[in-house]
Amino acid sequence: MTSVPAPVEPATRPGRPAPGRPGPRRRGLHGRGLIPLLLGPSVLLIVVFVVAPAVYGLYLSLTNTQLTGFAARDPQFVGLENFRTLLGSDDFLASLGRTGQFVLFSAIIGQTVLGMLAALLLRRTWLRGKGVFGAAILLPMVVPEVVAALTWASVLSSSEDGTFNRLIGLFGGAAAAPLQEWPMLSIVIVNIWRGIAFAMIMFQAALEDVPDELIEASRVDGASATQVFRYVTLPLIRGPIFLYLLLTTITTVGVFGLVYFLTQGGPGSATELTSIFIFQRAFQYSQIGLGSAASVILLALLMVLGLTYVRLTKVEV
């Protein structure tokens, strides 16, 4: 058996399709006639509830649709008016800027650095209690968004008994109201907290592929731990890191509940990320057209990132 060359094998059993590549076989319920039946429900659901809203949103962004009032009954086609309004609106541009800051500081810097730190530390062979440490770090990611926000509401409470204020008190600081005084910093920290685990998982998987011998060899050659990380480990996991950065950017742009629950965009509009801007324009000021146009701009920015993501991962279909 072992002497038979692999490519010949399929021919020895006529009619046997190559693995995972069955050709058209029988008729009716045995063959390709099944495809619409099998794939139909999925396609229908995705088209109606995911694709259609995206397309409809594109159309709405060109109208002055409102939830209430005259325009609600008779929406007009207004061309690019909404886009002109938005791109000239300080409110919207500021919200884009806040989303940019939020992504940069919480995801790209905070989660990445702390996630990498956790992944590296948990790889130490002498470390005891890996399971406990790992579980503690995973917890913020696996609880529902609303619970995550609720836990931080008590930490950041402006009352003197708030966990943060007690901690500050230990070091002799005066009580503060973090969500009012440093709202942006507060939500950045909350989002770092929630995302460390995801970064850690991604980096742990990447670090698995770095051969231990390589690291030992560099240590023997006299490289310090920092040098090993900088010149050996980091170049080897550059790909996964880049993929992670794109994934977390995309997810962080879509963060809504975590921030909305805590601040509802306030105080003033200090934490009004673009996701919250869209929600408030559309559902609180009932300007559906304007909200849709803001969504389209956000999507356009993300699509560029998304295409890069698919390119970079080079997924086999």
Binding site: I46, V253, I276, F279, L298, L302, L307
Partner: peptide
């Protein structure tokens, strides 16, 4: 459908609601 994963929920929620 892989690309769909890139679309954040807040970006389509307005049109979804009206639909």
């Amino acid at each position: 459908i892989l690309l769909i994963r890139v679309i954040p929920a807040p970006a389509t929620i307005v049109a979804l609601y009206l639909l």
